[in-house]
Design a protein around this nucleic acid. Structure first.
Length: 202
DNA sequence: CAATAGATCATCT
DNA sequence: GATGATCTATTGC
């Protein structure tokens, strides 16, 4: 676990990603996003858990049902935010992967909080440990203030961005089946920073 | 501890 | 009209 960063210091310690970075299959982008930093406004954290959703053949993926009003951003260019509302209560953030027309995406499932902890605590009304702020897909969107208002936002720059460290952290990646789905439940498409304390609960 | 229930609504059948 | 890429509180051992 790292100490909290001031926003300026975090920005200097990291660098922008190009839109090209996101233009690869979701199964490759998902592990590549581990260790990157997700920022929204003055709040943010390091990505420690992701899941890949592949598209038409992956019946667990929203895009497998085809192009609809909700999923249209998945069929567009990569590096955009796919935010959807679920269980009448939660928003989930995905990163659009792959080329235009190939609707792969990566679900961001957990962060290590790095920046704007107080603001995140207030949004979550949370008084427990730091990891509890962002160790789940619904929790992290609430903590960072991400909603469907960010649907389609580009992630290479702007208020909602993903950046990478100038000095890449060392860690091991573990792969498991995805969580909370029925179809394709045994496909090994969940990627985690092995042993990290901020992973989501089973 | 683990299991379960309840919250709550956009989306698709 | 049923379901769901979830979270929290509560119940039960």
């Amino acid at each position: 676990m790292r100490a909290e960063y001031k926003l300026g210091k975090l920005l200097r310690a990291t660098e922008r990603l190009s839109l090209k970075f996101f233009e690869r299959p979701a199964s490759e982008l998902a592990p590549a996003l581990l260790g990157c930093v997700l920022l929204h406004g003055r709040t943010g954290g390091m990505i420690v858990e992701t899941e890949a959703y592949l598209g038409l053949d992956d019946l667990a993926a929203h895009a497998s049902r085809g192009l609809t009003e909700r999923t249209k951003v998945l069929f567009g260019p990569p590096g955009r935010a796919y935010v959807y509302f679920i269980y009448g209560m939660h928003e989930c953030l995905n990163v659009v992967a792959d080329r235009e027309g190939s609707p792969g995406c990566v679900l961001i499932r957990a962060l290590e909080p790095l920046c704007g902890l107080e603001e995140m605590q207030a949004r979550r009304n949370w008084t427990g440990g730091e990891c509890g702020l962002t160790n789940g897909p619904g929790k992290l969107t609430q903590a960072l203030g991400i909603t469907r208002a960010q649907y389609g936002a580009r992630l290479d720059r702007g208020p909602l961005t993903i950046r990478r460290w100038r000095e890449k952290p060392e860690f091991r990646v573990a792969v498991t089946p995805r969580i909370g789905i029925r179809a394709c439940a045994d496909w090994p498409l969940r990627f985690v920073w092995a042993g990290h304390p901020c992973l989501s609960k089973r």
